[in-house]
Design a protein around this nucleic acid. Structure first.
Ligand SMILES: [Mn+2]
Ligand SMILES: [Mn+2]
Ligand SMILES: [Zn+2]
Ligand SMILES: [Zn+2]
Lengths: 138, 138
DNA sequence: ACGTCATTGCAACATTGTTGCAAAATATTT
DNA sequence: AAATATTTTGCAACAATGTTGCAATGACGT
């Protein structure tokens, strides 16, 4: 495993706590994105619901994970690439949600194309979400 | 106004009720997309919350309105073009959300570009949402 | 080992969304 | 136009999701 949990937390000036270690580990192990409910189920009664909310929030702020917009408007999170940092996300990749198994993929190698907006509109962020059948469900 | 409320409801085999007329009218008058909460506020105590949920659901099913995925995962709705019908949405346009005023625009003339997915992935729907500053806030 | 500061768990609350069912409104038939 | 059949609505009750304040706990530097 090339990803060091402790290193990542230290790098972001976060104190090393059980919840942060465990939750970050879940993301590393997970093939797809995770929702708050996934983490709650996987961790049982180990952590309070509120702690999970706050941990996710902290990770997003620090650029450790990013949120993924979905068509059904449920919030999901996935690990960021190394280039992301405090308040500086660079996740300009396409996301794919499988209608069959529900898995959410970060397609890191598919970049979001730029779009021509009407005059007067200025873009700061572009999200592209594709849904359909994933390679395992096809 | 070229859009007939009664016509639209009849065309979709929906009975003409106060809530449906009023809610559809709100969409026609609105420049941007509407959230459930917007409708609830604008209509005061006229309709029950549940009625609004059910009306929106019905409109989506009939292809009268469509949902818009947002980065902050709040559900918004906007009128569909004429080509949409029962279970047949054709809203392949880009959506824009202004970070300043919060307005959500349907950019009907900006079509979503097709993306090349990795082998094994099959797309059925593609959503592209841009956020930034709109023409009024620039 | 100690003091300081950050994090956690708990309780309480707010918002959002869903379901069953009786009452009311709409559509259809006579 | 009235009676009947069908749909829609409002209410209540509930579930899921998310937020905040605060005291207790845990992590960290010295
Ligand atoms: Mn991603
Ligand atoms: Mn639209
Ligand atoms: Zn799948
Ligand atoms: Zn604006």
């Amino acid at each position: 495993m090339l990803y060091s949990i402790i290193e990542t937390l230290k790098k972001n000036q976060l104190s090393i706590t059980d919840s942060r270690k465990k939750i970050l580990e879940m993301f590393i192990r997970s093939k797809g994105a995770l929702a708050h409910a996934d983490i709650e189920h996987q961790s049982g009664t180990e952590f309070d619901r509120v702690t999970i909310y706050r941990t996710l929030q902290t990770f997003v702020e620090k650029g450790i994970i990013h949120t993924i917009p979905t068509a059904d408007n449920s919030v999901r999170y996935a690990l960021c690439k190394d280039e992301c940092g405090q308040g500086q996300h660079h996740d300009d990749h396409v996301h794919f949600i499988c209608d069959e198994c529900g898995t959410t993929y970060c397609l890191d190698h598919v970049t979001v194309p730029s779009v021509d907006l009407p005059a007067g509109f200025k873009a700061t962020q572009t999200d592209l979400v594709v849904s359909g059948k994933c390679m395992r469900c096809n």
